[in-house]
Nucleic acid binder design. Sequence first.
DNA 1: TTGTAGGCGTTATCAG
DNA 2: CTGATAACGCCTACAA
Lengths: 342, 342
Amino acid sequence: MSKKTTIYDIAKALNITAATVSRALNNNPRISADTKKMVLETAAELNYKPNRLAMALKSGKSKNVGVVVPYINRSFFSNVIHGIEEELNPMGYNVIICQTHEDAKKEADVLQNLLNAQVDGILISASRQTKGTEHYNQILRKNVPLIFFDRKLNVRGANSVTLDDYEGAYQATQHLIDQGCTKIAHFTVDRYLEIYENRFHGYKQALKDNNIAFDENYIVTLESDIEAGKDAAKKLMELPTPPDAIFSASDPGALGAIQYLKGIGLQIPKDFCVVGFSNEPFTQFMELTISTVDQSPLLMGKTAAKVFLEQMGANNVKIEKQMVLAPSLKIRKSSSRLDPSS
Amino acid sequence: MSKKTTIYDIAKALNITAATVSRALNNNPRISADTKKMVLETAAELNYKPNRLAMALKSGKSKNVGVVVPYINRSFFSNVIHGIEEELNPMGYNVIICQTHEDAKKEADVLQNLLNAQVDGILISASRQTKGTEHYNQILRKNVPLIFFDRKLNVRGANSVTLDDYEGAYQATQHLIDQGCTKIAHFTVDRYLEIYENRFHGYKQALKDNNIAFDENYIVTLESDIEAGKDAAKKLMELPTPPDAIFSASDPGALGAIQYLKGIGLQIPKDFCVVGFSNEPFTQFMELTISTVDQSPLLMGKTAAKVFLEQMGANNVKIEKQMVLAPSLKIRKSSSRLDPSS
DNA sequence: TTGTAGGCGTTATCAG
DNA sequence: CTGATAACGCCTACAA
């Protein structure tokens, strides 16, 4: 029972040839109903399962796609992956997941590895350290579809599915202004990445549209973690004119800030308002729930997957699609002065 | 540049045969240093990359392993996967991740799918609905190593890496008793699964060892989510003799209970102590940090991966290993009457 | 409708 | 040390 049964075993059992078995199994019209039935029956009896490796080698299609993310254990990314799988598994694709740990070298490695594994496509959210685009061109040169999601780089021939980060940041900032905040600081992460750059611009534009002067001192660049958020908030509060609100491009940054501000006796949202970005689960679990911008990761994953499927469907026609999803501001306690409902 | 270069291309370029090229590439001793050098050089020039599919078909080893979990977007599981990848990627394995959504049928499907994809092994945390073990036997019959982690079922020939849930529960309960609690309730999830059954027994034994009577009314079975936790806490507090502590087998359950208890005016930990299980990230982010039992998911993943590698190393020798990891109680505010630090 | 033969890219077993 | 050949499991012209 250890040896796997092949189409040859079926052929032998029926005194026919493997080619005929293959046709029966593939709904090839050039076969009689009788033999087809017999083949199907004995295939079931012998518990035949096709060897995907052989099919892949023959067809040049592995039915595997690579998904590359900085970290798998981040709510946003694992939910995007969830969306990708939901769309791709029913179409017979398996998903190979790789992490870059925000390391450009590691990213190049896993991409090469995926290429060697003959994946049919690659969906990727670029690592923060990635600067060049040569790895990506190499993928496209091999005619492997490349789809960026969330963190894109500008690569000709690649598709992308991103959030309208500008709009999300604009809404978040406008919301803070609507709450009566006038000295709004901004936490950014890495403006080399479009997503953070766009959030910065959305923030800036909202200030401008409300005739609030932009103050460079209110911009802090920090890692996306709680400790960094605390430090950054401390730094801001030591300014001659400390801010009265923070729009953070990351949720952990927002949480750290909140913890620090409460620690020095400020009341949120009465004295100070905070809005984050990403809608990480913990933002809802806190007693003081945190306002944030939802990125609909599930939808992003599904959309990226659909773009890939289109690409596969289009015979040799190169599609170059840039999709942008709408953000959704979640107003919660950390910024709700006017309407204090959850 | 679209066509991939094969060993034949290298052979042609050097006027030698593909077999020789193969030997050069594989550190086969039966080859001259000269030709080897030339092959390596032109391989680099032509940008040759081995086709893993072909190697897989030839060798019968795909260098892929399947990892099956209920949900990928749960901190515990995504960290286990993280650990698995960290161990397996350096050994040249790719990880194919599948989700069951706690659905036994889906689980059977993905397992079959992984088998068809010729994975070299399967690491799995069983879905809650899975009752039979026939799918698993089928895997073992094909000589594909099967390693359970966390949620195991008893299958002969399979390996497992689990947490000492009994011990974790015992420690948690003993800790509550040490805080002066005497009427300790228990939230369980699904006692068909060993992990929950063991947590239940650990809880029970700790009571017994402290001469506290076991009360069936204090046992509530609920889904692992916040709303269910609230409902369950409500139910408990409506008992003639409500409890003064809860040991919850899940963190969301503990959080829901805390939210309900605070809602009715109880002070935690002064009036009521709560301990959860899993050390989900949010348990540390709350203002009222939640005591919980850490399952060291990263270590669990690495350990499961190592068991797999051992299995692959052992030539035809069947190993059947049951590894048990030690739990680690994290004492936080939700149960710290005596030492109010952290 | 079915059989034959060749090939996908690689490696292993023979000879030479 | 190197070359020829077969094989892994499947598919597909082409021929019968």
